[in-house]
Design a protein around this nucleic acid. Structure first.
Lengths: 107, 107
DNA sequence: GCGATATTCAACCATTTGGTTGACGATTAC
DNA sequence: GTAATCGTCAACCAAATGGTTGAATATCGC
């Protein structure tokens, strides 16, 4: 009943979840390590990771007692395609990207 | 306090609002005409348009008693850039990207 | 001026969201 | 075996979300 795009965009709407994705861009991480920089409970981070998993933005694999989180960039494709359908902006613009990152990292 | 991307992605997470954006891609529209194809009250659509306006995904201009809605694709740019940084990161120079990120984090 | 049209506002409601805490089931280390 | 670690679950809570209805505010046509 609910469009996968609903799930994708809703998952991306939370700053904690976007920060998690940025962290996972650099390397796969265990749940506890993902939680470490945030000022909230492990259970809360676990929930966020569940939402990202449902949105297929990440995958989780349990090895021993450690659950590893890995980014899954493909899920962004559908959302990206949807946005491209607006077609009024060009492809990735590095200057804009850097300006954006500056803003994002200040917060 | 809240990142503009929070607002943008949250606005895009609702299927009614995405449908409205698709409609506005074809032409500017009055509020009543936007509401016509949906099975919900005019007030509900008015709220959705308010959310899209706050996200700067559209603008609204009142001429007489009619309020015209116009798509504003620029707001999608920041979100698109953010997403493409994940979707296409394989095609980027990952080492340079990581060095860039680290530099930003120090600053 | 008066009625019809365009839109929003205010109050309300049910559901979802993002967080907490404490208990719990695995797994690992000693 | 027992204690510590990793992560989730369940119950709860406050606030936000997406919808409703009915009244209110402009503006237009006649």
């Amino acid at each position: 009943m609910s469009d996968p795009l609903d799930i994708t965009f809703a998952a991306l709407a939370d700053p904690t979840r976007r920060a998690i994705l940025s962290m996972l861009l650099e390397d796969d991480m265990a749940v506890t390590d993902v939680a470490e920089p945030f000022e909230m409970s492990l259970a809360a981070i676990s929930k966020h990771l569940g939402i990202l998993t449902k949105a297929k933005l990440i995958s989780q694999e349990k090895r021993g007692r450690v659950k590893w989180c890995k980014i899954e960039p493909d899920a962004l494709k559908a959302a990206s395609v949807w946005m491209q359908s607006f077609g009024q902006f060009e492809e990735l613009d590095m200057d804009a990207f850097e300006r954006f990152l500056e803003g994002e990292l200040e917060a």
